[in-house]
């Protein structure tokens, strides 16, 4: 029960935090059409987050052990160490190259994850995964194309995406490195061991990078910790902003 809840919260938190970052582009995109596109992805991700939070809240409320939970209490009233999102999601939005590359790494992972998760032994998770898979597939297509455009575009776009790669690569390992609750999910048959997705994930990256004329970095040191609540400094700043209203006006309905 504890593990399944952690697992659900990990899925929810990652989607919410990345949605939040992407939504920072709304109104500031490089061209109107792409402003709309990145906002759409933010909307899909917040939708996924809400579905996972809803399921997490039901688990909590059925157990009767804690105070009653809602999607909002989970999103707005937990502090940094309780958030389980991957570190990749919480990094600042950066420029368009950082945003694109991050989305690409994440969507490549989400697509593989949801393909497996839609056959989860837990019906709630399977149903959310099935719906979300369609979205992730589109996000992957969209972000792949942008990776290719930037990698094989102008000199400036190339140097920017190489910088982004340099910055982000060490946060990708965590996606495929199982946390204890993911191992439990694999054992109990309701979620895949992410290590089993690693090879296919890397193949997808290689395929797109080849077209984008980008080098796949060798295995370097990878940052981990987000999944178990050890975050970068950025998450605290993000939560301070995101949770401001709920903290300043406790117990209100909005």
């Amino acid at each position: 029960m504890e593990n399944r809840l952690s697992y659900t919260l990990y899925l929810a938190d990652s989607a919410l935090i990345l949605s939040h970052r992407n939504s920072e582009w709304t109104g500031h995109g490089p061209v109107l059409e792409q402003d709309i596109a990145i906002s759409n992805i933010a909307l899909d991700l917040i939708g996924q987050a809400r579905n996972f939070y809803d399921y997490a809240a039901r688990q909590i409320n059925q157990s009767g052990l804690n105070d009653p939970a809602t999607e909002d209490s989970l999103a707005y009233l937990r502090d940094v160490p309780e958030f389980k999102n991957c570190l990749l999601a919480e990094l600042p939005r950066g420029d368009w190259a950082v945003t694109i590359l991050r989305q690409f790494f994440f969507s490549a992972y989400q697509t593989l994850l949801f393909e497996k998760l839609q056959h989860s032994g837990v019906d709630d998770l399977a149903a959310i995964a099935e719906k979300s898979l369609k979205e992730a597939t589109y996000h992957l297509r969209w972000s792949s194309e942008w990776v290719i455009r930037l990698g094989d575009g102008t000199q400036e776009s190339r140097s920017r995406i190489l910088d982004a790669l340099d910055q982000l690569w060490m946060y990708t390992g965590e996606l495929l490195e199982p946390a204890h609750y993911e191992l439990a999910a694999a054992v109990e048959g309701y979620g895949p061991d992410p290590a089993t997705l690693k090879e296919t994930w890397l193949e997808k990256i290689q395929e797109v990078f080849e077209e984008a004329v980008l080098p796949v970095p060798g295995n370097e040191w990878m940052q981990t910790g987000g999944k178990t609540g050890k975050h970068t400094e950025h998450l605290g700043q993000l939560l301070a902003e995101m949770q401001f209203m709920q903290r300043a006006y406790p117990g209100c309905e909005w």
Binding site: H28, G29, P30, V31, Q34, D95, G153, E156, S157, R160
Partner: peptide, 8 residues
């Protein structure tokens, strides 16, 4: 800020 993106 978007100019380099559009150009690329």
């Amino acid at each position: 800020d978007g100019a380099w993106v559009r150009e690329a």
